[in-house]
Design a protein around this nucleic acid. Structure first.
Lengths: 350, 350
DNA sequence: CGCTTTCATTGACACGTTTCAAACGAGCTG
DNA sequence: CAGCTCGTTTGAAACGTGTCAATGAAAGCG
């Protein structure tokens, strides 16, 4: 970006640069895209011309000609969720390394917006996308792939395999280690505060939780009660408090595992309003290990996912696919980790 | 998006649609962009052809021809900060209403990334941008405007005026009402836990705080101590705890006003680690009223900004500028609001 | 009926870039 | 010196769209 005020706001393109440097447009293009193929002397001349004219490439031209743009989409369930913003950082860093721009698109957890965003990616002829599908209906995404836009699924193991690459954290194991932690503390009756079961991650975490009880010789059907909420945000968590406590002190669960941290934070707040103390009266666990999990009091016991790494890996897989469209699709599976803080404690019989 | 599997992945453009519908390409273009100018009968025919061929517009072509793309940039200081994600929602909603796509670009609080992102906007010939400048050095942004890309400044009042539109919340008043609240509680010695003073908002909040003391007949220089941290995140807040408490119990401030909620959350956590109780031992105030401010215990007293509305207003101003490039620049100023929760309490003399 | 006005449609061109076969020149080899 | 090769550069031809002056058709008017 030259600091000299350009007196003539005249459109300057590759051809004008060529003229100014005394070469052909083709050469300028080469300097821009494959510098190694042009002689050092001419390259220098062209580079000077570029600087002097304050030329800035028009990516519409490139994309039109080459059929693909040089930006990738990051289709995210909900920008508001800190989990995704961490992932976004990972994707960005890896994309930048390859010179790709990231456009962040927000589905806001609705199918219609996801559809609009997919449409957008197709129209832009995006190089590719990292996608967090809003639910199990993948038809729009498959359409996108037929249009020639590759994507890798994020946190959706089942989507990988035949259709493409995927990166995810083992949600079954996550539910399992969460359950083991609670069982280890003596809890034999817990509630799973869930999001919509149409979301795969939610289903798997629940299944893992059940399995931990089975593995301990307890009957999952008796031990874990499920409360399904329509969304995964703090407000829903707070509103769930009545149902969680329904049935009076005797029926009250000793511990609640929430489908994600957002729900857990809301629940903790709601419990506080009711005058219940965490973890003395009731233990609460989250899932994700969002930054804020460490900031509330007591700290939220939760299951950590390698968020940043998840984003990096996804973008790396996408890069691989762009380099070699015929490559073998990969399914990367990360392992979750238990993070114990203050919100869970040993069960105290009433 | 037709569900029929297209057997021929043949590139279908506006011309092929035209042929299929028995009209000229120009007419198809009109159907797409100015439907009112084409007779109902032909329009229907064209629309059917579009559906049958599963045509998807190539935005590279449009942008190339028209010189501008149909997406706007949202240049944000830090995607990780919940404040911005709220703003993003507002911008998105308003942009969608006008058929513009929003690409979210993250400066990660560094000048270099901001520069790269600005470059990107120029190369994409973005229709416009909503920008949160990383600091007072606006040269890159002015360059962008010279390139023909309009932008409106977000939360940067001083940037508006001659150079363009701006939308912000009155940070001076924000600091003022925060200070009045603390003074009302009897605090006469407070600490301002600040971010970099290169950020305008920070300076103004500080100035407002000082003014509140002056207005109460107290000497600002004696009453408010400043602690400057290099970034506005929770980690910095937590790390600041030593300095806040420096000098022992007698010197300890009765209250701390933080430059934003992130800092405050970190500080509260740090104080907890030190065994200090909020607000009994020390009062803490944040700024922004991020969602999480309500989720910690005690709830964080803070200054609320109309985040979503801020985003909407900014995008609306941008729309106005795009409609009429010669329009008079506007400076919109929102008012902050005090939100009292549990983290502040009356001063107790030691 | 001849004239103008209005409305719909046409068709060619331009936008800025990449690509690729072809041309060029210099250096080598026999 | 003719013949080759290799490294560099050229020039023209797309890519898919929007624009606009021109054309055609239909309608309104005196």
């Amino acid at each position: 970006m030259s600091s000299s005020a350009s007196p003539a706001p005249h459109k300057v393109g590759i051809t004008e640069v060529a003229r100014h440097a005394g070469v052909s447009p083709g050469t300028v293009s080469n300097v821009l895209n494959r510098p190694e193929r042009v002689a050092a002397a001419t390259r220098l001349r062209v580079e000077r011309a570029i600087a002097e004219l304050d030329y800035v490439r028009n990516s519409s031209g490139s994309s039109l000609r080459s059929g693909r743009s040089s930006s990738v989409g990051l289709l995210v369930l909900d920008v508001t969720n800190p989990f995704f913003t961490e992932v976004a950082r990972g994707v960005e860093d890896e994309a930048a390394a390859r010179g790709l721009a990231v456009v962040l698109l927000n589905s806001a957890e609705t199918h219609e917006r996801q559809r609009r965003n997919i449409r957008l990616l197709a129209e832009q002829r995006a190089a590719g996308a990292v996608v967090m599908p809003v639910d199990d209906d993948l038809s729009d995404l498959l359409w996108l792939r037929r249009q020639g836009t590759a994507w890798v699924a994020l946190d959706r193991g089942d989507v990988g395999g035949e259709t493409g690459c995927s990166v995810s954290v083992d949600n079954l194991v996550g539910g399992l280690i969460a359950g083991r932690h609670l069982i280890g503390l003596g809890h034999e009756r817990v509630t799973f505060l869930s999001g919509p079961f149409s979301i795969e991650q939610v289903r798997l975490r629940h299944e893992g939780l059940r399995r931990s009880f089975a593995e301990a010789g307890l009957d999952p059907d008796a031990a874990v009660r499920v409360l399904e909420r329509p969304q995964l945000n703090p407000e829903q968590g707070e509103r769930a408090v009545d149902e969680v406590l329904a049935g009076g002190p005797r029926q009250r669960p000793g511990a609640v595992l929430c489908a994600n941290d957002q729900l857990a934070l809301g629940l903790v707040k709601g419990l506080g309003r009711r005058g219940l103390r965490v973890p003395d009266d009731i233990s609460v666990m989250g899932y994700d290990n969002v930054d804020f999990a460490d900031l509330i009091h007591p700290g939220l016991t939760t299951v950590a996912q390698p968020k940043y790494e998840l984003g990096r890996a996804a973008m790396r897989l996408l890069n691989a696919e762009l380099d070699d469209p015929g490559h073998a699709h990969e399914r990367l599976l990360f392992s979750p980790e238990l993070v114990v803080r203050g919100s869970t404690a040993a069960h105290r019989p009433a």
